[in-house]
């Protein structure tokens, strides 16, 4: 427990990181790998929320659930990278703007 730091400090920190992660998804349409990294940032923000609430309510359930979220984030990152590799083999690039191919 940090003195002078309230729970809302952690909530606002998690919100900022969540917003940065969400903005990374729709600002990086040229680069699929950065989209995956932004999704990892979103997972990180949720983990910060979980652990902060777990400590400020003196309840261990938040940390246990944060471990499960870590597992899911790892599995999702692995499958996302596998899909990225297949996409790269098909399209020779990791741009997911489909507009040039849908015209005509």
């Amino acid at each position: 427990m940090i003195p002078d730091i309230d729970i809302m400090h952690f909530v606002i920190l998690a919100t900022i990181i969540f917003t940065v992660g969400v903005s990374g998804i729709f600002m990086n349409r040229k680069n699929l790998l950065t989209i995956l990294m932004s999704i990892e940032l979103i997972f990180l923000s949720i983990n910060i929320n979980m652990v902060a609430f777990s400590t400020y309510n003196q309840d261990l359930l938040g940390q246990v659930f944060a471990i499960f979220i870590l597992v899911i984030a790892g599995a999702e990152a692995a499958i996302g990278i596998a899909i990225l590799i297949v996409y790269y083999n098909l399209r020779s690039g990791i741009d997911i703007n489909l507009k040039p191919r849908m015209q005509g």
Binding site: S23, N28, S38, L41
Partner: peptide, 9 residues
């Protein structure tokens, strides 16, 4: 943390 996440994006 906030600065590095902004630089990630």
């Amino acid at each position: 943390l906030i600065l590095s996440s902004i630089f990630v994006v």
